[in-house]
Structure formats: structure tokens, C-alpha cells
Design a protein around this nucleic acid. Structure first.
Length: 475
DNA sequence: TGAAATGTTGGGGCG
DNA sequence: ACGCCCCAACATTTC
């Protein structure tokens, strides 16, 4: 009898899971395990919202394994120690996992792989279409501009589409009777991922978590929204985005599964408008991982070093007002409250609230990055850091710093009728559309009747302040 | 995946 | 008819 461990991490699915498929092919007993390791990108380092999602995702994975008579073995502690112990308990001779690409996990995994050499660790790619070293410029260095990266990646994909065909879920996960007898089998609750307060119940009630839900979400998006995606994805008041990000982040679905289902064997270069735009979003995620891998310190250091000397302000009261959606700027507050209530924010609004924090409040982008990491259910180190540096103007292919969003104009352009603002800022529900994005221009008596804060800052003045601050480091 | 200032053009009112 | 002004609409430049 041969026993193989499958170490689940950011790949909480049975389909298109190469580590699982390899274990099933190699052994007649497969032991699925998730380790909550204080080092590396696992449960202990995630933000509170992501931990809530992870809890439910692990439950879903355990249930799926249960349908095969197996279970998810749950262990808490340093990964190496936990895996060594598990291997000894179940007599494993092999171990399989899928690679992660954040710096802490890489460092930890290198160590684990070396120490577990007797289990012949075999690792695979399940996180990306292309791993960070696969799409490079001719000189072997990573792309720092998105468009050429996208062209190169799409070409590489279309040159060998079969390489990226997703794997089916294994018909069987053998050895369930052994697995179910192991300590921690199915004991997701023991991780203590849910916070003691009850906010997480309302948050997660807005989502369906797990591999099956991810697949259904993709189907619904492709059936209903992808055709108009080009335009509709920018309108936060209506449904138009895929909302796949948390599923992708936790690996409930893979980018290859996503592409395969809508490209349907066609070349990426032949897709329609909405489909192309959506495919490009999938590859923004790939681009982010490429940047994180090659420039690991950009999680908290600006890629453009000039920004190390940027004269950021320190203002805890303003930061708190931004975090809680009490800035007095409707579209900003709506976005921050959507985030707080649902663990997610529409992407157009993410750009607006980020621009407001960085440019109008002149607070360091790292403060926003940290808040997003703690509150987003899709909090992804690579995408989050790239996105914040994009807005700050310090990243790869970033928006120039002087591109300052005016949240009133953005609101009037992308939330024309004010539906989004009214949904998340009920204090403004009855304000006429003309003023819903700038209630401070209401007549005094109407304004006094509102239970809504005056704007924290003057948009025009702070815009100029930001441009002046930038001038000091422009060099 | 900007906003605001500045420049240009052309229609219309008016003396 | 003409110059002048105003201003909207659009284009360009600057940050």
C-alpha cells in the first residue's frame, strides 16, 4: 500500500488541481491536509475577512472530499513539523502540493521541500496560467508595462492552448477510511478562523463559498454579463463584474478553468470585445504575480524609489474616517461601506477611494493596502499591492501621480442616477440626483436636515496640495 | 483605467 | 457689412 499527502494551500478545489491529480495517480491512499501555519501565507497571516472566507471554503472542500468518502485533515502549527508528524502517522512516502508565489510562502516552502526530501516532494502550478518566470522579455527580465506583457502572454497561450487545458476532478479520492481516522479529519472549526464577534455572519450571507459556487458564479457571469462587460464593469450601481475574485484568490476555481470555459478552445486573440476585456483582467492578476515574484519588496516599498521621499501626512482621524465611510464624500463613503459590509468593493470604486486616500488625504498608500488586506475577502498580496501602487503612481505601468480622480465627477460619470451611493449611504437616499454626489451644494436648510458629515477636505485645495507634494520628489 | 487650465473655433447678439 | 463680445463646444496642454 502506498500513501501520498496532498497539501492544500491556495488551491481549495478538486478540479484542475494538479497536485491532487498526481497524488491520486501515484498512491492508493491519498491524505488531503490543510495546515494553519503561523509562517507563510496561510490562515494566521490573512486579514479577518479572508479568514472568514477561508473557513467556509475549507468546509466546502471537506464536504467535497466527503462525497468521495475522504476528508480534509486539519492541522495547526509550523508546516514542516505538522507534515513530518502526519507522514509518520499515516506512513506516507510521497507528498504533493501546488506552488504559491508570495515571498514568505516561497521561503518557507523551499525549507520544507528540502527537509522532506525523503517524501520526494513534487510541486505543480495551479495558481496561474503562466508562472512568474514564464512570460519574460527577450532579455530575460520581467515586463514592467502591461500591454506588451498581455500581448506576449496571449501569444504564448495561443501558441500552445492544449498546455493550459484544465484537469478534471479525480473520479475517486482513495483511502478515505484511513483519512477519516486521522486526528483533525474534517475539523475545520479547530482553526478558529471565525472571529468572536458576529459581523461575519451578515458578511458571508452575501456570498456562496466553495468550488461549486465558484463554478456557478462563472456560468452566471458568462451567460448574463460578459457580453456587456466592456462598459458595464465600470458601473458600480449595477451588476456587471464577474465577482470571481474571492473564488480565484482562494483557489476555488483556477484561471485556466475560467479561460477555458469562455474561450472554449478559441485563441485569446479572436475573442469578442467583452471577452477580451475580461481575459485581460485575468492576466492583470498574472501580471501582478509576476511583479510580486520579481520585486518582492513592493508589498510595502514603492517600486519607483523616488516615492520613498514622498512627504506623506500622518492623520489617524482622517484614516479612520476613510476606513469607516465617514469622509463626507458620497462615492468614497459608499465604497468603504460596501467593503465593510460585504468584504468586497467594486473595482471602479476601489480606484476612487484609493485616489482619495492617497491624493486628497495625502496618506501613504501602504495604509490603504493594509486596510484592504484586512477587510477584503479577495485580499491578494499581489493584486492588492499592484493596485495600490498603480494609484499611487509608484508602481509598474502605474497611473501618473498627477492623474487625480475627482470623486464627484467619477460619481456623476459612473453612478449617474446615484443608485450606488443611495444603496450604501442611506442618509442620502432622498437627496435629488443633482446633488447626490455633492450634498454640500444643497441649500442650507436641506443640508442641515441631513445626518451626513461635511466633506473632510476641500477637493480642489487638496488636489493642488498633492500636486505640490509630488513636485518635491519629481527629480 | 483624469482633471483642470488654456487655446481655438464658430454662431449669434449687438451697435 | 463689419467688428466686437460672449459663450458654448471642442481640442490641446499641463499637471
Amino acid at each position: 500500500m502506498s500513501v501520498a499527502i496532498v497539501w492544500f494551500r491556495q488551491d481549495l478545489r478538486l478540479a484542475d488541481n494538479p497536485a491532487l491529480a498526481a497524488a491520486v495517480a501515484a498512491a492508493d491512499t491519498v491524505v488531503p491536509v490543510f495546515v494553519d501555519d503561523p509562517a507563510g501565507r496561510t490562515a494566521s497571516r490573512l486579514g479577518a475577512a479572508s479568514r472568514v472566507w477561508l473557513h467556509h471554503s475549507l468546509r466546502a472542500l471537506d464536504a467535497s472530499l466527503g462525497e468521495h468518502g475522504s476528508a480534509l485533515v486539519c492541522r495547526q502549527g509550523p508546516a514542516l513539523k505538522m507534515l513530518e508528524a502526519l507522514a509518520a502517522e499515516c506512513g506516507a512516502t510521497r507528498i504533493f502540493w501546488n506552488r504559491c508565489h508570495d515571498p514568505d510562502t516561497i521561503e518557507r516552502d523551499v525549507r520544507v521541500k528540502k527537509a522532506l526530501a525523503r517524501l520526494e516532494p513534487a510541486t505543480s502550478n495551479a495558481l496561474l496560467v503562466f508562472e512568474p518566470w514564464q512570460v519574460l522579455k527577450k532579455d530575460g527580465t520581467p515586463y514592467k508595462v502591461y500591454t506588451p506583457y498581455w500581448r506576449a502572454a496571449a501569444r504564448a497561450h495561443d501558441d500552445a492552448p492544449d498546455t493550459h487545458r484544465p484537469l478534471p476532478a479525480p473520479a475517486d479520492v482513495p483511502g478515505g477510511e484511513v483519512v477519516r481516522a486521522l486526528a483533525g479529519a474534517g475539523d475545520v472549526d479547530a482553526f478558529g478562523l471565525l472571529p468572536p464577534e458576529r459581523w461575519h455572519e451578515a458578511l458571508i450571507a452575501r456570498w456562496e463559498v466553495g468550488e461549486r459556487a465558484a463554478s456557478a458564479r462563472l456560468d452566471a457571469f458568462l451567460a448574463e454579463d460578459v457580453a456587456a462587460y466592456d462598459h458595464a464593469r465600470d458601473l458600480p450601481g449595477q451588476r456587471g463584474t464577474s465577482r470571481l475574485s474571492p473564488h480565484l484568490h482562494h483557489g476555488e476555481i483556477s484561471p485556466r478553468q475560467v479561460l477555458a470555459r469562455f474561450a472554449d478552445g478559441r485563441a485569446l486573440s479572436s475573442l469578442g470585445e467583452g471577452e477580451t476585456t475580461f481575459a485581460k483582467e485575468v492576466f492583470w492578476r498574472e501580471f501582478a504575480y509576476t511583479l510580486l515574484y520579481h520585486f518582492p519588496d513592493t508589498v510595502d516599498e514603492p517600486l519607483d524609489r523616488r516615492f520613498q521621499a514622498f512627504p506623506w501626512r500622518e492623520d489617524d482621524a482622517a484614516l479612520r474616517a476613510w476606513q469607516r465611510g465617514r469622509t463626507g464624500v458620497p462615492i468614497v463613503d459608499a465604497g468603504m461601506r460596501e467593503l465593510w459590509a460585504t468584504g468586497w468593493m467594486h473595482n471602479r470604486v476601489r480606484m476612487i477611494v484609493a485616489s482619495f486616500l492617497i491624493k486628497n488625504l495625502l496618506l501613504p498608500w501602504q495604509a490603504g493596502e493594509r486596510w484592504f488586506r484586512d477587510t477584503l475577502v479577495d485580499a491578494d498580496l499581489a493584486s492588492n499591492a499592484m493596485g495600490w501602487q498603480w494609484t499611487a503612481g509608484s508602481g509598474a505601468d502605474a497611473a501618473p501621480f498627477f492623474r487625480v480622480f475627482n470623486p464627484v465627477l467619477q460619481g456623476e460619470r459612473f453612478d449617474k442616477g446615484g443608485d450606488y451611493v443611495r444603496r450604501w449611504v442611506p442618509e442620502l437616499a432622498d437627496v435629488p440626483t443633482k446633488h447626490v454626489h455633492k450634498p454640500w451644494e444643497l441649500a442650507d436648510d436641506a443640508r442641515a436636515a441631513l445626518d451626513y458629515p461635511e466633506p473632510l477636505v476641500d477637493l480642489k485645495v487638496t488636489r493642488q496640495r498633492a500636486l505640490d507634494a509630488f513636485a518635491t520628489i519629481r527629480g
